[in-house]
Computed example of a mutant assay.
Amino acid sequence: MTQIHSNMKKRTYTHLTDIERGQIAAYLEQGLSLRNIAKKMGRDVSTISREKKRGSVQQIDTFRKPYTEYFPPCL
């Protein structure tokens, strides 16, 4: 039996470009919130949040205190 009608909508997402990842890094350095970054870039806030989470690493400063830093991937 085959299904003729589908209730699945066609997905319309696009991947982030390297330029957009660089913009995210620059905006984060300026101290902008994830919502403001998403609004400026015309993306959903969850996209920015996931990218930040994916590209963040934990570092240790000179006083041995951990902090998190976002690094866009270099291709």
Score class of each variant (00 low, 15 high):
residue 28 L to N: 05
residue 38 A to F: 11
residue 24 I to D: 10
residue 41 M to E: 08
residue 31 G to R: 08
residue 28 L to G: 03
residue 66 P to F: 01
residue 47 T to E: 11
residue 68 T to H: 03
residue 52 K to D: 02
residue 56 S to A: 12
residue 62 T to V: 01
residue 57 V to G: 14
residue 40 K to P: 04
residue 24 I to Y: 03
residue 66 P to I: 00
residue 49 S to I: 00
residue 39 K to Y: 13
residue 67 Y to L: 00
residue 55 G to I: 01
residue 54 R to I: 06
residue 28 L to F: 08
residue 61 D to R: 04
residue 54 R to A: 13
residue 35 R to P: 00
residue 48 I to F: 07
residue 51 E to D: 15
residue 36 N to H: 05
residue 43 R to T: 01
residue 36 N to V: 00
residue 67 Y to F: 15
residue 64 R to N: 14
residue 41 M to N: 12
residue 62 T to L: 08
residue 42 G to Y: 10
residue 35 R to V: 06
residue 31 G to N: 08
residue 51 E to K: 01
residue 66 P to H: 00
residue 61 D to Y: 11
residue 33 S to P: 03
residue 62 T to K: 15
residue 58 Q to I: 04
residue 41 M to P: 11
residue 32 L to R: 11
residue 53 K to Q: 14
residue 26 A to M: 11
residue 29 E to I: 03
residue 36 N to R: 06
residue 43 R to P: 13
residue 53 K to P: 00
residue 25 A to R: 04
residue 58 Q to R: 12
residue 33 S to C: 12
residue 45 V to A: 15
residue 47 T to V: 15
residue 54 R to F: 06
residue 59 Q to A: 02
residue 58 Q to F: 03
residue 45 V to F: 09
residue 52 K to A: 03
residue 65 K to E: 13
residue 31 G to L: 04
residue 64 R to H: 13
residue 41 M to H: 07
residue 27 Y to Q: 13
residue 63 F to Q: 08
residue 32 L to V: 01
residue 28 L to I: 05
residue 54 R to P: 07
residue 43 R to E: 06
residue 41 M to W: 06
residue 55 G to K: 12
residue 49 S to R: 09
residue 67 Y to N: 04
residue 58 Q to Y: 06
residue 48 I to M: 12
residue 33 S to W: 08
residue 58 Q to K: 04
residue 54 R to C: 01
residue 52 K to Q: 04
residue 42 G to A: 07
residue 65 K to H: 10
residue 56 S to V: 02
residue 45 V to Y: 11
residue 55 G to R: 00
residue 40 K to R: 14
residue 68 T to A: 06
residue 50 R to F: 10
residue 62 T to H: 11
residue 32 L to F: 14
residue 66 P to W: 01
residue 59 Q to N: 05
residue 54 R to N: 08
residue 29 E to F: 10
residue 52 K to R: 13
